[in-house]
Amino acid sequence: MDTYKLILNGKTLKGETTTEAVDAATAEKVFKHYANEHGVHGHWTYDPETKTFTSTE
C-alpha cells in the first residue's frame, strides 16, 4: 500500500488529508467521497510523481 495525499482548495473548506491505498484509482474514490461529504465539488488533478490529488473550486 502507498500513501496518497489530497489538497482541498474549496470555497468553504481548505486543507489536506492522506489515505493508504493499493493504487491511485482507489485513493481517488476515497478522496472524492471525502470531498463530496464536505461539500467540495471542484476540478480534480493528480500528480503521479508525488501521489497528490488536488481539488479546486
Rank of each mutant, 00 (worst) to 15 (best):
Y46A: 00
N9Y: 12
V30G: 04
K14P: 04
D2Q: 15
P48D: 09
D2A: 13
G39E: 05
K51I: 01
E49H: 11
V30M: 10
T3G: 03
K29F: 08
T50A: 06
F31S: 00
D2I: 12
H38N: 11
K11E: 11
T12A: 10
P48E: 12
T45M: 08
K32F: 08
T56F: 09
T18N: 06
D2L: 11
T17C: 15
F53V: 00
V30I: 15
T26W: 07
D23I: 02
E57L: 04
Y46S: 00
N9D: 12
H33Q: 15
E16F: 13
G10W: 14
G10M: 07
E49S: 11
E57T: 05
H38L: 14
H38Y: 10
V40P: 02
Y34Q: 03
T12W: 14
V40R: 02
V40Y: 11
K11N: 13
T26E: 14
K32H: 10
A27K: 00
A27S: 01
T56N: 09
K11S: 12
E28N: 04
I7H: 04
T50E: 06
F31A: 01
M1D: 05
K51N: 06
V22Y: 13
T17H: 15
F53A: 00
E37R: 09
T56G: 04
E16H: 09
K51M: 06
D2M: 13
G42S: 05
K14Y: 13
E20G: 04
T17E: 05
K11I: 15
V22A: 14
Y34L: 06
L6T: 02
A25Q: 11
T26K: 05
V30K: 08
H43L: 13
F53N: 00
W44F: 11
H38T: 05
T3A: 05
A21I: 01
A24Q: 09
H43E: 15
E49W: 10
T17S: 09
V22H: 11
T56D: 13
T3N: 05
E20H: 10
P48R: 06
D47H: 06
A35R: 02
K5R: 13
A21P: 00
E16M: 09
K14C: 14
T18W: 14
Y34E: 02
N9H: 10
H41A: 09
G10A: 05
G10K: 03
T45S: 12
K51D: 01
G10P: 02
T45P: 01
N9E: 09
S55K: 03
D23K: 02
L8P: 00
M1N: 09
H41L: 10
K51L: 10
A25L: 10
H33C: 10
T17A: 12
K51F: 08
E57W: 06
Y4P: 02
T17L: 15
A24C: 13
A25H: 10
K5F: 10
D47K: 03
E20M: 14
E57I: 05
T54N: 05
Y46M: 00
E37T: 12
F53P: 00
G10C: 08
N9T: 08
P48G: 07
T12H: 14
G39A: 05
K5D: 03
G15R: 13
K32D: 03
K32T: 06
V40D: 04
H38F: 12
A25Y: 10
I7M: 05
G15S: 14
E57R: 02
E37M: 14
D47T: 05
F31R: 00
L13P: 04
H38D: 02
K29A: 13
T50S: 10
K51Y: 06
I7E: 04
H33S: 12
M1G: 09
T3D: 03
H43G: 07
W44K: 00
A21T: 04
T56Q: 07
E28Q: 08
N9C: 14
D2V: 12
K11H: 14
W44R: 00
T18K: 07
T52A: 03
A21V: 03
T56W: 09
T54P: 00
H43N: 12
H43Q: 13
V22F: 12
N36M: 14
H41F: 14
T19D: 02
E37Y: 10
D2F: 13
S55A: 15
Y34P: 01
T18R: 07
F31Q: 01
E28M: 13
E57Q: 06
Y4C: 04
E49C: 10
E16V: 12
S55M: 15
L8G: 01
H41C: 11
K51T: 03
K32G: 03
Y4W: 04
Y46P: 00
F31E: 01
I7A: 03
E37A: 13
H33L: 14
G15T: 15
A25D: 10
G42C: 04
K51W: 04
A21E: 03
H33V: 12
G15E: 13
T26V: 07
H41T: 10
T3W: 08
E16W: 13
K11Y: 12
L13I: 14
E57G: 04
K32L: 10
T54M: 10
T50L: 07
E37Q: 13
K5W: 08
L13V: 14
K51G: 03
T54S: 07
L13Y: 15
H33K: 15
E49F: 11
T3I: 13
G15P: 04
L8K: 00
H38R: 13
T17K: 08
T52N: 01
A25T: 10
L8I: 12
D2W: 12
I7K: 06
K51C: 04
L6V: 03
E49Y: 11
D23C: 04
T3V: 13
H33Y: 09
A24N: 04
T26L: 05
T54I: 07
A24R: 10
T54W: 10
K32A: 06
T3K: 08
A35H: 01
H41P: 04
K51R: 13
E20N: 11
E37I: 13
F31M: 03
K29M: 12
D47S: 06
W44L: 08
A25W: 09
P48K: 08
S55E: 05
E16K: 06
T50Q: 06
T12L: 12
H33G: 08
A27H: 01
S55Q: 08
A35I: 07
T45L: 07
K11F: 14
T54C: 08
T17N: 05
N9I: 15
T45H: 11
E37P: 01
I7R: 04
K29Y: 07
F53G: 00
K29W: 07
K11R: 12
Y34S: 01
D23T: 05
T19A: 08
N36W: 14
W44V: 04
K29Q: 12
V30S: 06
T52H: 01
G39V: 03
E16Y: 11
Y46T: 00
S55Y: 11
A27I: 01
K32Y: 07
T17F: 15
M1A: 08
Y46E: 00
T54A: 06
F53I: 01
T45F: 08
T54E: 07
A25C: 13
K5L: 08
F31V: 01
T19L: 13
N36C: 12
W44E: 01
D2K: 13
S55H: 10
V30D: 05
E37C: 12
G39W: 07
N9F: 11
A24I: 09
Y4I: 02
T56M: 07
T19C: 15
F31T: 00
V40L: 08
H41Y: 14
V30T: 11
V22Q: 12
G15L: 15
D23Y: 02
A35L: 12
T52Y: 02
V40E: 05
K14T: 11
K29E: 11
N9G: 04
G10F: 14
G39K: 06
A21M: 02
L6S: 01
E49P: 08
A35T: 06
A27W: 01
K14I: 10
A27Q: 00
G15A: 15
N9P: 03
T52W: 01
W44A: 01
H43A: 12
L8W: 11
E28H: 10
T18V: 09
A24G: 04
P48V: 08
T19Y: 13
N36A: 15
K11A: 14
H43W: 13
D23Q: 03
F53M: 01
E57A: 05
A27F: 01
K11V: 15
K5E: 03
